[in-house]
């Protein structure tokens, strides 16, 4: 992810990040990319997430 892409994401989020910190955040963006890629494995379409909403018990 380029520095421009990171800065665009910060701006889209409406965060007023000091100029000095922007390149540091951009330099750390690869951690997120690597972690997100690691979570994309070959799983079945119906593989459920851990959080599902349980219906409330009958009154």
């Amino acid at each position: 992810m380029s520095r421009q892409e990171v800065e665009a994401a910060l701006a889209r989020a409406g965060l007023d990040v000091p100029e000095r910190e922007k390149p540091e955040i951009a330099a750390a963006a690869h951690f997120i990319e690597e972690m997100a890629a690691r979570l994309r494995t070959d799983r079945k379409m119906g593989a459920e997430p851990a959080h599902v909403f349980p219906p409330p018990p009958e009154a």
Partner: peptide, 10 residues
Amino acid sequence: RDRMALATLI
């Protein structure tokens, strides 16, 4: 703030 700013990339 800088750690949490990384969440905007998720």
